[in-house]
Design a protein around this nucleic acid. Structure first.
Length: 296
DNA sequence: ATAGGGTTAG
């Protein structure tokens, strides 16, 4: 009977708690939740998750820990979502190490991480100079009963590539294939970019023309950018444009921006202008026009 | 009802 009477009340009050939280009125949310409790209608895990999200946004992490601690003596149990929320909050405030520690806490509670959990942690670790932890977590993921998909690999590989670790990128590429995770076009674009950072253009080009993968305009834009940037030769750019039209990929606004900006940078304003005029065939880009006029 | 994410240029 109590169960039946209580459920609609929690459903009534949780959105109000949420409303307070959204407006940053966290203390009023807390107050309402203690009122709910003394009225015999205790907040449930969703209500607490909403509160924890707001506490995290306000960087009030000690209070989050307190709420989690208090749950032992109350009739709600933290869920995977609870820990995901907490970990994401820590990540957003640059506390990657603490977030990773929460993974062991949740495992200790008998809660299984999900692909959400992995995504939160991998993103956070990759962008927080903890790329090594991210790679370890990827390698650990089979023992965690959760599954790292193509996006998880792309996240870590992208950062590894930017940091110049192209061998690490290739290792993860082979790892994922061995695990049955199929790389997609973005994966290959990330690999190509990582090779370009280290000027391995011939490997990058041969990967782009490999039958095993569908190159797109981003693939060619990446190649054009790096080849042009490092070689500073328009002839090599023209070769790449020839290649891309041969596989029926049309240049887009980004392609023209790379070319126009690169030419202007080297002082070839007339050639840049003619490429700009050519780009009008696919439409006038305000941004490209701005690039040109700023350089002129 | 509450939690997350991957590719290019300026």
């Amino acid at each position: 009977m109590l169960e039946v009477g209580c459920r609609p009340m929690v459903q009534t009050y949780t959105p109000i708690v949420q409303g307070y939280c959204r407006e940053g009125r966290v203390d009023e949310a807390k107050e309402l939740m203690s009122t709910m409790e003394s009225a015999g209608c205790p907040p449930n895990v969703v209500t607490y998750n909403v509160l924890i999200r707001a506490l995290c946004d306000a960087a009030r992490f000690d209070e989050v820990r307190q709420v989690l601690m208090d749950s032992r003596t109350k009739d709600w149990k933290p869920s995977t979502v609870t820990y995901n929320t907490f970990m994401n909050g820590l990540c957003k405030k640059g506390m990657a190490k603490e977030a990773l520690e929460q993974l062991d806490v949740m495992l200790g509670e008998g809660l299984d991480p999900t692909d959400f959990t992995l995504s939160i942690l991998l993103n956070c670790l990759s962008h927080d100079k903890r790329i090594h932890d991210a790679v370890c977590l990827l390698e650990r993921n089979t023992s965690l009963k959760c599954y790292a998909g193509v996006v998880a690999y792309n996240t870590v590989m992208s950062r590894l590539g930017e940091m110049g670790h192209w061998m690490g990128v290739l290792k993860l590429l082979t790892d994922m294939i061995k695990r049955g995770v199929m790389p997609n076009t973005r994966t290959f674009n990330i690999v190509i970019r990582s090779l370009c950072f280290r000027r391995k253009f011939s490997i990058a080009k041969s990967l782009a023309s490999n039958q095993g993968f569908a190159a797109n305009v981003v693939t060619y834009n990446t190649l054009i950018y790096f080849v042009f940037y490092y070689s500073r030769k328009l002839s090599e750019v023209k070769d790449l444009i020839f290649d891309m039209t041969a596989v029926r990929i049309a240049p887009d606004e980004v392609t023209y921006t790379i070319i126009v900006d690169g030419l202007c940078r080297d002082g070839f304003f007339d050639t840049a202008t003619s490429y700009f005029l050519e780009s009008l065939e696919i439409g006038l880009s305000r941004d490209l026009f701005a690039v040109l006029t700023n350089r002129l």
